[in-house]
Write a protein that binds this DNA or RNA. Structure first.
Lengths: 202, 202
DNA sequence: GTCTATATGCAGATAGAC
DNA sequence: GTCTATCTGCATATAGAC
């Protein structure tokens, strides 16, 4: 691992836990096992290093949707596929969601620079949901609500990890991990049950 | 409004947006229309002022559950009642959830001081869900998942407001507000549909 | 490229007049 | 209680040796 890579790795860890303002260049340097001055040699400023980490996290989190869309032929298939893939993605970077929400909340301008990229896939998903709802294949629901419902249930348990672990699992890491492992299937079942029309046609 | 009240109001606003580390005492003073030194006269330190704001927000958010529980006779009733009340609560302090998650993420010790209070109501809700699931009145689901599903769908749209407004509503505040207004009913419908057993007994 | 030593600026906190 | 002026420490950033 090169010095630059170990800096980025350390910066990811510290920034995602503490945020831009809470992070200390000293802590990042310690974490990377190098000197503070080297940080400024590789990345001119703290802001600059932060910007790298933030946009990297942001880009990994958001546009994932578009890929899954083309592979699904109907909404139910897409929902299952999306939950699976998005869940795996977040599992690999569990602190990213809370980090992104935190920093955008602190400085809403961060979002402006990165916008535009995700307009298209969102519209496609909206259309898919609307089409099936209009055709009576699923329960009538506004696409925006269904999308947010799914995303909420995936992301929130990661963002609220410390509280959930304390309140529901007496701070037992293992119990929380087991809970997370179940969620992928649970969310899929939950969503499909919610959007399925209850008919007696058998 | 007394000086102390206007300080607390200003501190709430600034801390909830910027967090402990991101907030500046100068900004709080400006927001309150007073001098920086007065902050230290009323509250000895930044940490001290922050602690007031944080525990106030935390206590308002969490133990709300217990009250609603006694008024409901079955799970479906409780779910509807809980969503309604919790939604109203958060609407009044929309920045609190993200703020709490952020600060606990930065400093997990914050949760230790405040724990213990919510053990009881959570256990009662768990039992209620388990009882109805075992009795076949609702779909089988682990209580923890159902609770987190509901909380997720309520809280996330507030925590992710800037992103949602940009990605789904082209930064139109009005469209986002309308979306939020619908959510209370949408979430209730969604959850009830998901936990209802699909039978053909009519 | 990597370090030690140092400069710079800013934010939290205090002193003291009114 | 409220202000202006000032102190202090710390975190970012730079200089310069190796």
């Amino acid at each position: 691992m090169t010095t630059e890579e170990s800096i980025l790795k350390a910066a990811r860890k510290v920034f995602q836990r503490k945020g831009l303002e809470g992070a200390r260049m000293q802590e990042i340097a310690d974490e990377a096992g190098i000197n503070k001055a080297l940080l400024h040699y590789y990345f001119r400023s703290k802001e600059n290093l932060f910007e790298k980490i933030f946009s990297e996290a942001f880009e990994k989190m958001l546009p994932a949707v578009s890929g899954y869309l083309s592979e699904a032929t109907n909404l139910r298939q897409f929902v299952v596929f999306f939950i699976e893939k998005y869940f795996e993605l977040i599992s690999e970077m569990p602190y990213a969601p809370q980090f992104i929400l935190q920093e955008i909340n602190r400085n809403p301008n961060l979002i402006a620079n990165l916008t535009g990229k995700f307009g298209l896939p969102v519209e496609l998903v909206k259309e898919l949901i609307k089409r099936e709802a209009d055709a009576g294949l699923i329960v009538p629901i506004r696409p925006e609500h269904l999308m947010i419902n799914i995303i909420s249930m995936i992301i929130f348990p990661f963002a609220a990890k410390p509280i959930i672990m304390t309140v529901l699992f007496k701070n037992k890491q293992q119990a929380y991990d087991e809970f997370l492992n179940q969620r992928q299937a649970v969310i899929a079942d939950f969503v499909l049950a919610a959007i399925t029309i209850k008919k007696c046609d058998q």
